[in-house]
Amino acid sequence: MVVDPDTDLVVRVGRGDRTAAQALMARHLPGMLALARRMLSGQAEAEDCVQEAFLKVWTHAARWQPGKAKFETWLYRVTLNQCYDRLRKKPTEPLEAAADVPDGGDSPDRGLEVAALETEVSAALADLPERQRAAILLCHYQERGNIEAAEILGISVEALESLLARGRRTLRTKLSHLRDGAV
């Protein structure tokens, strides 16, 4: 039996409880959006993607069977599948990310540095195969454990580790010039 902190909220959402829907959204939307944004390198597409994922939640919540799988795992898998669909329909546009980068906070220079870093990282991520990208983002961007990330991706932990090793190596090679500077 899987202990799932979301079960109560999902059951209430299934009964049409709007407050529970808001709470569920507040809990997961930031992480889902961040993941989709890095997967797709575009804010608008990422927003559409998480909106579609939540639409699936609202539609399926009444049929959710607690104990079968962790809700969050299912939710992130749905989000990633939405991302894969969009990636297959349309080639990525890695440089779009630079347009909607938030500012760096302290100074205009820092803001520019962050924007440049964001652009470079987005471009490097966009060059990775989608499964490697998803594995890297789940483990190193969202800092999830390997078991959880493997469950989300629907693969074994060994397969995940293989994806991670290849993805990290490529990322490091592409971004090696950042090592002593921006990072």
């Binding site: 939307l29 998480v50 980068v101 962050v114 190193h140 961007y141 990290r168």
Partner: peptide, 22 residues
């Protein structure tokens, strides 16, 4: 490589959720 990936992503700004999306 793992440490490098972690450092890269920690240096990135967090993504804000637009109110319109909610």
């Amino acid at each position: 490589d793992a440490q490098f990936a972690r450092d890269i992503f920690r240096a990135l700004p967090t993504t804000a959720v637009p109110a319109g999306l909610e």
